[in-house]
Each structure stands twice: as C-alpha cells, then as structure tokens.
C-alpha cells in the first residue's frame, strides 16, 4: 500500500520533507517510524489524514501521515 509521509521541523534533516512509500498491508505508524529511524519520543505529534494518531495506529492505502518532533524551548 502507498502512504505519503510528511515530516516537519528538524525531522526533515537528513531525511525528506514529503515522500511516498510502499508499505506492507497492516503496517502501523510504529513500523514506519522504525523504517525512518525516528524514535517514538521524537514523533511527538502524529497525524493521519489530519486526525490525531499514535504509534499503534494502523494505516491504509492512500493515507497521509504527518509527524512533528517535540519542541520545548523558551
């Protein structure tokens, strides 16, 4: 299945801003994070088609996955 992955802020460094990937049916957000070498802690905010998700969220063909890192400075 095809999933579009969009990375925000510093997660783009040495990766990409947006790209399409082929994943096996039944892949979760957690599988995709692992394939991109992004830890669950680094993926502070996860959105699937604009809805709040988490590492356990399942994905389906055509989904748009957006991942934001934690920003905590002041």
């Amino acid at each position: 299945m095809k999933v579009t992955v969009k990375l925000f802020a510093s997660l783009r460094k040495d990766r990409f801003a947006v790209d399409d990937f082929d994943y096996q049916e039944g892949a979760t957000v957690g599988h995709i994070l692992a394939s991109l070498h992004i830890s669950e802690e680094e993926a502070a905010i996860i959105f699937i088609n604009g809805r709040h998700g988490g590492p356990d969220s399942p994905l389906k063909d055509g989904d748009l996955l957006a991942i934001f890192p934690p920003v905590g400075g002041g």
Partner: peptide, 11 residues
C-alpha cells in the same frame, strides 16, 4: 502534544 515525551527537553 507531549503525551509520548518522557524527557525534559525537545529539539
């Protein structure tokens, strides 16, 4: 926003 983060600081 910070539900999965267990450290003190972010990026």
């Amino acid at each position: 926003i910070y539900s999965r983060y267990i450290g003190e600081r972010g990026i």
